[in-house]
Amino acid sequence: MPITLTRIDVSAYRAPIDTPVATSFGVMTNRPAVFVRLEDSDGAFGFGEIFANWPAAGAEHRARLVAEDFADLLISQSFNGLTGLFDTLTRKTHIRALQCGEWGPFRQVIAGLDTAYVDLLARRADVSVARFLNPDAAPEVPCYASGIAIAQAATEIPASRAAGFSAFKVKVGFDADRDVALLSAAFDGLKEGDTLCADANQAWDFSAAKDFLDRTTDLPLGWLEEPLPADAPLPDWQALRKAAHVPLAGGENITGLGGFSDAIGSDVFSVLQPDIAKWGGLSGCWQVAQAIRQSGLRFCPHFLGGGIGLIASAHLLAAAGGDGFLEVDVNPNPLRDAFAPWGDTETRGVMKISAAPGLGISELPDSVASYQTANHTLVR
């Protein structure tokens, strides 16, 4: 039956942090998030999260996009089916995004709104999002510790292991000599059964990426993530794949069903990592997840943000099944931890999927209110 939306609440947040989170392309000096809530004419509601990590001013901008560029396309409008909202907003905002060239922000807003819409649909059906997508969804998903700066690996990997993780991902792409030395030392400190991956965050050109691979041939990386820019020429990616002794991973900066179809058929990636907050939301990434699994590749959703997006990513992975891991950023983030994604358990290596309707989130935690920087409420 059609879903008619009557209310939108969208808020931007920024949580201060003591230690900046560094990547090869920039440094986060606080933890931002944008949370959105949709409500329909029957009072059913759903929550979503919009990507806000970059640029530095992105959170408040995304929140205003929802209020000023999407409200007229949502309030009092009706949508049908799982992809109804995603398809409609993608079509109706095409010229707006083209006019300003802000493809990323528009895609990210649509992604967060789609997640909220699917949460609403699952809540109306009185099932979890995971079971709404797949009645045979897994009851829990394995997690890996991400966001570990290579310079802090010697302390952060043991701390993550103590929290229950046995798979870890370090950030490289800073100084080649230092990266290789520290990565080698990190392997020396692993325990039996541990897995270690590396993420370059698009830092290198082909020559630098191949040099890194040549210098780490004795290190059994679980995968090397984004060694090249997502838009690097396909021949460069294919040549690097032939030279690589480890699986290549990517996907957080790929968009569109066509983009993922090309990635699946490229014979480059062993691991694909769509991000529900950057493109596609739950409905778009559910289609991609199924295609990845059907192709025999590994589906490991990317996520680095607040609690809503992390929980939604867990539901998506549970629905998709397979041998994927849920990415869990181990850097401090009150906007994630306030949602208690692991419930009252202290171990972080496995996340159980709540059987509550939707994503199991009935309201925003009180503790996030002090971090709010912008709020917009739109009603019919």
Rank of each mutant, 00 (worst) to 15 (best):
R7I: 12
C143M: 10
G101I: 12
D18S: 15
A340Y: 09
D205E: 10
I353D: 10
P365S: 02
C143K: 04
T216I: 07
P233R: 00
P235I: 02
A71I: 11
V172C: 04
T377A: 05
S166G: 09
T6V: 15
I8M: 04
A71Q: 03
A138G: 13
V129L: 12
N30I: 12
P220F: 05
D337F: 08
G259W: 02
R336Q: 06
Y144P: 02
D72R: 10
A230H: 09
L133N: 05
A151M: 10
F325N: 10
P142C: 13
G84H: 11
D194P: 04
D136K: 12
V350W: 07
A145L: 07
L113E: 04
A338M: 01
D275S: 06
L257K: 11
G309P: 05
I50E: 03
D366S: 08
V328Q: 14
A44N: 11
G296Q: 05
H61M: 14
L240K: 01
A125L: 06
T88H: 09
P235H: 01
I3M: 01
A22N: 07
L282H: 06
G26W: 12
D214M: 12
P274T: 00
D262E: 14
P274V: 00
Y144S: 13
Q99D: 15
R298H: 14
A33I: 08
A185H: 00
S362V: 12
F35R: 08
V129N: 11
A12W: 05
I157P: 10
D119K: 10
G280P: 12
F303G: 11
F299G: 09
G46T: 00
G222F: 04
L221M: 05
G251N: 13
A12F: 04
A318T: 02
L182G: 00
P233W: 01
A138T: 06
G43T: 13
